[in-house]
């Protein structure tokens, strides 16, 4: 990192190192908020774990939508594949070791990512959106029909994960599940942070910003997008596995259009094209949803709708994106004055 700062001039001096710092800050924030959540909301750990598993799905959507520019309303297919994968492994095959269940979820998510990527990436724009909706309905219908394996509309139950590392039992208060979730989130964040800064991450941004230019550099646009879909599937599948392990049931709603659409809304709320935007959007949306629906069970959807309209109209880059742009402008203005 030091290299880029030594011999470049002007604006460059602050740009490169600040990004690394932000990665460390992000990891630290997950640890701090994760710990705080444990002590501040000890009775709501199940909700917090639910937020983390959803956050993994929102991060997965961000990888294809925010970074590669793919329009999708069917991404819960990848999440549901992970949830059913982990759940079926436990309920039908006796694979109850939680890390193995998680791994099964990740693999199933990646495969679902590959399959839906192949379908969705055939088209562009509106047609792409329609294909993604078709995919989620097909996945859900398949899960519904295969009720011998999935429990159909009754849901899949009988998922009894062992203790983590043979020591930490999944308790009634959801403490173990929560800590496990925070740990998975932390590891995922660090890996994704490395990914989006890597050359491959730049290729992905190139796909979104101008695929023709990217091809003129010799890169295969289609191959970048398919690889990103598989990675996205792994992340969404991880979220699904966490959901299966922590709630010990998997329902058809984990493969639903509603979940796909809601998580896309969370991403837009927080801001696309940034890992922080995805995480902030999920937390704000789900806390808001939880508080408002408790306070006003009849009109909470209206209020969520109003919030979303406000964000889209007044902060089109999302909550995080708008705040980040604001601070960037301010720091630049400050630097300009120093120079003068």
């Amino acid at each position: 990192m030091a290299l880029s700062t030594q011999s470049t001039t002007g604006h460059g001096q602050a740009a490169a190192p600040r990004r690394t710092d932000r990665g460390v800050i992000g990891a630290a924030a997950i640890v701090v908020f994760g710990t705080a959540g444990y002590f501040v909301f000890p009775d709501n750990l199940a909700l917090l774990t639910h937020i983390i598993s959803t956050m993994l799905l929102v991060l997965a959507i961000d990888l294809v939508t925010g970074y590669c520019g793919v329009a999708t309303l069917g991404h819960a297919a990848l999440f549901g594949a992970g949830a059913y994968g982990a759940g079926i492994a436990a309920a039908h095959f006796g694979i109850t070791e939680p890390l193995t269940m998680t791994l099964v979820g990740v693999i199933c998510g990646s495969i679902a990512g590959l399959i839906s990527g192949i379908v969705v990436l055939r088209a562009h724009g509106l047609a792409q959106l329609v294909l993604s909706i078709a995919v989620i309905h097909l996945f859900q219908e398949a899960a519904n029909k295969a009720s011998a394996w999935t429990g159909g509309s009754d849901g899949l139950s009988g998922i009894m994960p062992d203790a983590v590392f043979g020591r930490f039992e999944f308790d009634l208060f959801g403490q173990t599940a929560y800590v496990y979730g925070v740990a998975l989130l932390l590891v995922t964040f660090v890996l994704l942070r490395i990914l989006v800064r890597s050359p491959f991450g730049m290729l992905a941004r190139g796909v979104k910003e101008d695929p023709v230019r990217l091809a003129a550099m010799g890169a295969s646009v289609q191959s970048v997008m398919i690889r990103m879909y598989i990675i996205s599937g792994a992340v969404a599948g991880l979220g699904g596995a966490l959901s299966a392990i922590s709630t010990q049931v998997v329902g058809l709603d984990s493969l639903s259009f509603t979940l796909s659409a809601e998580t896309l809304v969370m991403l837009v709320l927080g801001g696309t094209g940034s890992l922080y935007g995805a995480m902030v959007g999920t937390v704000v949306f789900m806390f808001f949803e939880d508080t408002v629906s408790a306070a006003n069970p009849f009109h909470w959807l209206t209020i969520v709708g109003a919030l979303l309209i406000a964000v889209v109209l007044f902060a089109p880059k999302g909550l995080y994106g708008t705040a980040a742009a604001f601070f960037e402008r301010r720091s630049r203005a400050g630097k300009g004055r120093d120079g003068a």
Partner: peptide, 25 residues
């Protein structure tokens, strides 16, 4: 790429030319 810097553009071109643009870290 409107949101990328000239440095990123040229670096990406070089990495792609050398077959290293697919690296994930």
């Amino acid at each position: 790429f409107p949101d990328m810097t000239p440095e990123e553009h040229v670096a990406l071109a070089i990495l792609q030319r050398d077959g290293k643009a697919g690296r994930m870290s």
